[in-house]
């Protein structure tokens, strides 16, 4: 006789578990999210276009994506440095610093927002030091970048750390045997190996930064056409009961974010092929 192979569903509970998952996901996420295209397309095309091409909308979108890109780039460098120091060096308080890296994930954004605003306000601890240098952070786009660097800081550190931990010492040894200096070995050997992790962290920080609201609005000053971010403009349109306009701006945000993340994924795939070749 043939031994009966175990039925693929030996473990019970498939129907219940998948049922709960799909029902909850549909009711809380998918159905409500479908409201954005629904509400946006209920608007006449020329009215929707008027919302998108409104200079205030264009500026808010450009500001949100521009500051998020800049902050993610700062975090790529800063995050790599922090991951390097945390993985490679032994120093007193290393575990404390490692735990502290996740502070932006745990600290509510509104708390971060008022704290950064207080720090960088013209009479704040840091604002007072920067003012004589002619640098104004609070109530300018620079303040938005500072807030987004804060909220996005952990992403790159946490994606690069495990890769550095796993980095094979032999690879570096080989480079050293071949006479490469440290900086050359870092650039030619280490950097290409951690690049995918840096880029992955960059993408996460970017996605987070584009939509960030709580930590930004206190330090930004929120002047239309100067320091008004796209999420705030959505909130303002909603307060005016202009649901259609809010949905159109949200749809534009989601579309641009999707295109950017798609581009980053293509870059990752291209990079993988290049390394394997």
């Amino acid at each position: 006789m043939f031994a009966r192979s175990p039925s693929p569903k030996v473990i019970p509970g498939f129907g219940l578990a998948l049922g709960i998952t799909l029902a909850y996901l549909s009711l809380v996420v998918l159905l409500p999210l479908a409201m954005i295209p629904l509400a946006a397309f209920r608007l006449a095309p020329e009215r929707a276009w008027a919302v998108v091409s409104d200079p205030r909308t264009v500026h808010a979108l450009a500001l949100s994506f521009g500051t998020a890109l800049l902050a993610a780039a700062v975090n790529a460098v800063l995050g790599t440095l922090l991951a390097w120091v945390l993985v490679r060096y032994d120093f007193p308080g290393r575990r404390l610093v490692d735990a502290l890296i996740d502070l932006p994930f745990a600290l509510p954004t509104a708390v971060a927002g008022i704290s950064l605003a207080a720090l960088y306000a013209p009479n704040g601890w840091l604002g007072r030091l920067l003012a004589p240098l002619g640098v104004t952070v609070a109530y300018t786009p620079l303040g938005i970048v500072v807030a987004l660097v804060f909220v996005g800081l952990p992403f790159v550190v946490r994606t690069v750390e495990p890769v550095l931990e796993a980095l094979d010492a032999e690879v570096e040894e080989a480079a050293a045997t071949l006479g490469a200096s440290w900086s050359r070995a870092f650039r030619r050997v280490v950097l290409p190996l951690i690049a995918p992790a840096v880029l992955a962290g960059f993408a996460m920080a970017l996605a987070r930064g584009v939509g960030e609201y709580g930590s930004v609005i206190f330090i930004a000053g929120n002047l239309p056409m100067v320091s008004e971010i796209a999420p705030l403009l959505i909130a303002i349109r909603l307060e005016e009961y202009n649901n259609g306009a809010a949905a159109v701006i949200a749809l534009a945000m989601l579309a641009i974010a999707f295109a950017l993340l798609l581009a980053i994924n293509l870059l990752q795939a291209w990079n993988r092929r290049r390394i394997e070749a």
């Binding site: 409500p32 954005i36 939509g211 909603l238 809010a246």
Partner: peptide, 12 residues
Amino acid sequence: VSPVIAGLIYVL
């Protein structure tokens, strides 16, 4: 998804 958009969808 931006937190503001998360709120927006329930208002819509």
